[in-house]
């Protein structure tokens, strides 16, 4: 954002959930806030990390438990379940078709737009080490891997804090 759109307030979002509908809610708010010139930071933790994972790589992690967890929790921006009416994947497919019909951007497109508008993405360190994930497992748009203290230091200066 240039000088005419000076930073007017800020939004900090923690995306904890790994479902497409909840991730979309986070990105609608993030892109709208960015369009208003607000500084936006999104922290991805636990299941929410799936939204910013690169495609591919079913087996990740060091030990068998991490490998099993990552294989069973496989997902990325184009492959996430719904929090309701998932219907073994039929729900997300139908929602994607309805979104395309209404020209609502997909989650993948929202992520690209948000990043282009200066929204910052931070994966949380603790969830990553728990699940055996590395920074390379995440989209190149991501900033540094951070911890709870860094999150709190940003969140306490922020007007709007959301946990999704």
């Amino acid at each position: 954002m240039d000088s005419a759109l000076q930073k007017k307030g800020s939004v900090t979002i923690v995306l904890f959930s790994g479902e497409m509908d909840k991730a979309l809610a986070a990105f609608v708010i993030a892109t709208a806030a960015a369009s208003m010139g607000m500084a936006v930071n999104i922290f991805f933790t636990f299941w929410g990390l799936n939204a910013i994972k690169k495609e591919g790589g079913l087996i990740k992690g060091r030990n068998w438990m991490q490998k099993m967890l990552n294989a069973m929790n496989y997902g990325h921006a184009k492959k996430l379940a719904l929090s309701k009416l998932n219907m073994l994947g039929a729900g997300p497919a139908m929602l994607k078709a309805m979104m395309a019909q209404k020209r609502v951007p997909s989650l993948h497109e929202f992520i690209k737009t948000a990043s282009a508008m200066g929204v910052k993405f931070y994966p949380f360190e603790m969830s990553m080490s728990l699940m055996g994930l590395k920074k390379e497992d995440f989209l190149d748009e991501c900033q540094d891997v951070i911890g709870a203290v860094t999150y709190l230091s940003i969140a306490k200066e922020t007007g709007i804090n959301l946990f999704i």
């Binding site: 609608v28 709208a32 369009s35 020209r103 508008m117």
Partner: peptide, 12 residues
């Protein structure tokens, strides 16, 4: 286009 894209596109 629907919310929030008109504002996003206008800003861009």
């Amino acid at each position: 286009l629907c919310c929030p894209m008109p504002s996003v596109k206008t800003a861009l």
